[in-house]
């Protein structure tokens, strides 16, 4: 098993001491099969226990360990050190406020996610004895990729619109809203309309497409949002042009 020393350059920020974030470099003997998260764990265990970062599953399922690795939003559990150079720069996810070291504040996303009502709003509520809401495999296939989101927020860190326009609901939350709007069992469009298609909604997106590039689960947020624009346009015209609001 080969071990190679690598320089891990970590952005540090201690809200009790630092006015601004600063870089600190650690020399870490990395094994060949290590990911960046392993290197951070080594630093915390052996070099500086104060280093703060989020992680949980270590297998790209939980979505906790998103960071900028060499300036790209990445799950640090999926970023093999052998794919990087001798020096690896690790920073907290871009566009979010830094709480401490590599931990960002998720407050803004959480608030927007909830406003989007990302759950099934059925036309008619079923009781337990009525059985589940059913769906054919093809109806599921229409939205399948958009259901795979793990809320890791890499797409927000990649999105220049979110960076500049803080009211933008953003890729992951809009994709989840689209996923439910387009779900054959859902009838919640009217309840989601204002957040989805109003100020800060899908029309803020200018289709840069970087969100889909960084997504570790191939959720294709860029696609979901463009399809959402189409739905919104159809909804607009049916409501204003058709007698009875298209109902």
């Amino acid at each position: 098993m080969t071990v190679q020393n690598r320089q891990i350059e970590v952005l540090r920020y201690d809200p009790e001491r630092d006015e601004t974030p600063r870089f600190e470099t650690f020399t870490v003997p990395c094994k060949e099969e290590w990911v960046v998260l392993d290197a951070l764990t080594y630093i915390k265990d052996e070099l500086d226990p104060s280093l703060t970062f989020r992680w949980s599953c270590h297998m790209a399922v939980c979505g906790s360990c998103g960071m900028q690795v060499d300036n790209k939003p990445t799950l640090s559990c999926k970023a093999f050190v052998r794919d990087y150079g001798e020096k690896i720069r690790v920073e907290p996810l871009a566009n979010f406020p830094i709480e401490r070291d590599l931990v960002i504040s998720q407050d803004d996303f959480m608030e927007k996610l909830q406003r989007g009502r990302p759950w099934i709003i059925p036309e008619q509520k079923r009781e337990v004895e009525d059985g589940p809401y059913v769906q054919t495999p093809m109806q599921l296939d229409d939205i399948k990729e958009h259901t795979m989101c793990i809320n890791c927020l890499l797409c927000y860190a990649a999105c220049p619109v979110y960076a500049l326009e803080r009211d933008f609901v953003g890729p992951a939350a809009l994709t989840l809203m689209y996923r439910y709007n387009a779900d054959s069992r859902d009838a919640g469009w009217d309840e989601r309309r204002e957040v989805f298609a109003g100020h800060g909604g899908v029309w803020e997106c200018s289709f840069v497409g970087a969100c889909s590039d960084v997504c570790p689960k191939h959720v294709e947020p860029a696609t979901a949002i463009q399809k959402g624009k189409m739905d919104s346009a159809v909804d607009y015209f049916t409501r204003f042009l058709m007698p009875g609001g298209g109902k």
């Binding site: 406020p97 830094i98 220049p160 289709f207």
Partner: peptide, 29 residues
């Protein structure tokens, strides 16, 4: 107390930033 440090981007120069995407998305855009 929490004292989150805001990360801002330059309103005019953001697109020449260098995030290592698989292709230069910002410039392409």
């Amino acid at each position: 107390a929490r004292r989150p440090y805001p990360q801002e981007v330059d309103r005019f120069k953001w697109w020449i930033a260098d995030p290592h995407f698989n292709r230069p998305y910002y410039l392409d855009y």
